[in-house]
Amino acid sequence: MSAGGWAPRRTLSLVERNARIFRRSLTAVLASLVEPTMYLLSVGFGVGALVGRVAGVEVRYAAYVAPAILATAAMNAAFNQTSFAVFSRMRNERSYDAIVPTPLSVADIALGEVISAVFWGLFAAVGFVLVMALLGLIVSPGVLLAIPGALLVGFAFAAGGLAVTTYLRDWSDFQLIQLVMLPMFLFATTFYPVSVYPGWLRPLVELLPLYQSIQLLREPSLGVFNWGVLAAAGYLMLFGALALALATRRLTRQLLA
């Protein structure tokens, strides 16, 4: 049985369902801002006081890390929705058992979950930009470009999360996900420029989707514009599209056995 193709109205009906559930958990939106805000305060300001000026960076350290933490906030918010939440719907709530017998196709379900997660990432991004503003870390109106940027970041990680979820056997496999997400968070130039790494290591770091996400958001937020931003956008689009295709294919096999 095929994935069944997309129909916008059917896809949106799933987004509507998720929106109704989100609406009841607004504290969860706030919660998704706690961790990035804490990192911004303790590393951005706390460690920032120890760091002083960073070579090759014009602004103070907290303003430099803020857009990168913004990228991780959008990433985590979107990723958690298509990993934790979707896995819980597959295993615990068995929501899809009720949805599959409706006219929705598996492609509708996959895209609907990704779109919902992108919104989630967008909320986190908007919330975090407000936090940045409160802390006086907006250095350029270019930060407004970070909002559409966060949509792309959300898309890449929502689709990636959904693809990963189709490979999970049980809840303990989430530890393995942490083993990928944590080093990516630590090494994707969130806290320091890529020039810290020896030359041979840089291409590896640059392959990380979070590195590309930070590229996409950081320079525009700091009021710097170059063509690298477009390359990052292209990378994230491609990454998300491939992940979504993979996720849809695998979900079809799992839901329509």
Binding site: Y61, L182, Y192, V196
Partner: peptide, 19 residues
């Protein structure tokens, strides 16, 4: 094992480089 190794490399060494 992974947690301390990653944090010590990423934050301790990486960020330490700046500090």
């Amino acid at each position: 094992v992974a947690n301390p190794v990653l944090f010590l490399l990423g934050i301790g060494v990486g960020l330490g480089h700046l500090v």
